[in-house]
Design a protein around this nucleic acid. Structure first.
Length: 181
DNA sequence: GATGTCGACGTGG
DNA sequence: CCACGTCGACATC
């Protein structure tokens, strides 16, 4: 699948560092964690940004701040998930239904999309999630409430879960620094 | 518990 | 075709 046509990138300053919001003409198509070495494309916009871009980014900023502050994430900008395959999009869609403070296992997610045996494939789709945090892949745990993995870095997953008050089997309780805000 | 094995399956090369 | 994943269930020690 070809990468999304990203045309604009805007930063989001937080206590946790500078996030990066990536936008296509259709909406938010990516979010990068601070210190993410993952290449973010150069600004290739050679056209005027959509008039809605400012509003989209304002919504993204508010959502990121709320998510980091363990608050409810309100309205999101339109999400452009066309970079994903149909399978991935169905997984991402199902993930959006995991509410604040809730978790699901990879197996449960697989059942939600009627592909009960495609468990590892679901894991793969989680890893390909272009908009972590707002599409809450950190709320997907391995079976039995264990942590599982996280392509964005396990320390982020631990911190985000801690801020939502989610306990993880086999993990130390969060220390002050992880709850710091 | 802690390992080890095997099955399942979408993706990228 | 092949190897690799944010896996899961079970078997064995």
């Amino acid at each position: 699948m070809s990468p999304a046509a990203i045309s604009w990138k805007l930063t989001i300053q937080t206590r946790d560092g500078r996030f990066l919001g990536l936008y296509s003409v259709k909406g938010l198509c990516g979010l990068r964690f601070p210190e993410d070495a993952t290449s973010s494309p150069d600004d290739v916009a050679n056209t005027e940004p959509p008039s809605a871009l400012r509003r989209w980014h304002a919504l993204t900023e508010a959502a990121v701040h709320a998510a980091l502050a363990s608050g409810q994430v309100g309205e999101l900008p339109p999400l452009d998930l066309q970079c994903g395959t149909p399978f991935q999009q169905s997984v991402w869609q199902a993930m959006r239904a995991i509410g604040f403070g809730q978790t699901k296992s990879y197996g449960e997610l697989a059942r939600m999309i009627s592909r009960p045996t495609a468990i590892r494939a679901v894991g793969g789709a989680c890893g390909a999630n272009p908009i972590p945090l707002l599409i809450p892949c950190h709320r997907v745990l391995a079976a039995g409430g264990k942590l599982g993995g996280f392509s964005g870095g396990l320390s982020w997953k631990r911190r985000l879960l801690a801020r939502e008050g989610i306990a993880v089997v086999g993990e130390q309780p969060p220390d002050q620094d992880d709850l710091r805000w």
